[in-house]
Write a protein that binds this DNA or RNA. Structure first.
Length: 292
DNA sequence: AATTCGCCCTGTCGGC
DNA sequence: TGCCGACAGGGCGAAT
């Protein structure tokens, strides 16, 4: 599931390919994914450097008008970049689970819902088997007032410990730590994987009520979030099955996870068997001993 | 008014 | 082997 580190990885890797190129055509295979706006309004415009807010990827364009194409990759979204001379590969790689993942730049298939044709003959392909992703075409000037983006809190990357603590204390209600971390209006970008990882690193159980965290543990949580996200970006994202880089390669953070997907395995810190439960309607893995 | 629930979606996997 | 239900879950709108 693409969270902040995965989307940031995509942003960084498409960034060198876009600026200066024009968007000359679009093809929308799944109209329902376009939530707001009109793709035709984007054609003829030139790409500016891509941006990111939380899990949203923003592709600003300029020219006759200033527009931004906003993408949310949902659960299984993949944004790939096919250079003009790209060799299309329909080979698959068999993962240990038996799942077959496309290898390299793949040809368009029934899950490819948006194709952007660039002026140099290259293409951006948005593929999303589960179709939880969303596409928005917005005027750049008021893009932040669109409902989805206006609800977002500050980006979770680069938030300072003090600001983290201040916002955390301001969140109303008797909510547990995991619910708060997943709340995109608190901080934008944290999803299920990095919420669990952050809690483990901080030594805090996900079901702990937010109001029960003292100053010290709150500071540890802020640092743990920064560490988990930073490590995710360093490892170029977490690939279980669906997440791929724009060139079809994959991240390595799945090899560096402490708790997520490690239910029943020993805690890397204390050796206790990790326990899976449901918190905030999400599968949650934690160490019963060193997360209190 | 805060919180939970149901829904959207498809591929994968375990059980029988 | 094959069918089927359960599961994965981000975000929104409806219900509680």
């Amino acid at each position: 599931m693409p969270e902040l580190p995965e989307v940031e990885t995509v942003r960084r890797r498409i960034a060198p390919h876009l600026p200066g190129k024009q968007l000359i055509a679009t093809r929308l295979g799944a109209p329902k994914l376009l939530e707001i706006g009109d793709l035709d309004a984007l054609t003829g415009l030139a790409f500016l450097p891509p941006e990111r807010i939380g899990k949203y990827l923003l592709l600003p364009l300029c020219g006759a008008r200033e527009m931004t194409l906003v993408l949310h990759l949902g659960m299984t979204g993949q944004l790939t970049y096919a250079p003009a001379d790209a060799e299309v590969s329909d080979r698959f790689r068999r993962l240990p689970s038996g799942y077959q993942k496309p290898l390299g730049v793949h040809s368009e298939d029934r899950h490819t819902h948006l194709v952007l044709a660039l002026s140099d003959g290259s293409r951006l392909l948005f593929r999303d088997p589960r179709r939880f992703g969303r596409i928005l075409s917005l005027e750049t000037a008021d893009r932040l007032s669109t409902p989805r983006l206006s609800r977002l809190g500050p980006d979770a990357l680069g938030i300072g410990d003090k600001e983290f603590a201040r916002r955390f204390r301001d969140t109303q209600g008797r909510r547990n730590v995991k619910t708060i971390l997943l709340d995109q209006s608190f901080l934008a970008g944290i999803g299920n994987i990095y919420a669990d990882e952050s809690c483990h690193t901080a030594g805090i159980h996900p079901t702990t009520l937010g109001q029960d965290l003292g100053k010290l543990r709150l500071e540890r949580l802020a640092q743990a979030v920064a560490e988990a996200l930073g490590r995710g970006i360093q490892n170029a994202g977490t690939t279980f099955r669906d997440f791929v880089h724009p060139d079809g390669s994959h991240g390595s953070n799945q090899e560096d996870l402490r708790v997520y997907a490690r239910s029943g395995k020993p805690c890397l810190r204390c050796g206790t068997i990790l326990v899976k439960s449901v918190v905030a309607q999400r599968g949650t893995v934690a160490c019963p001993k060193c997360q209190k």
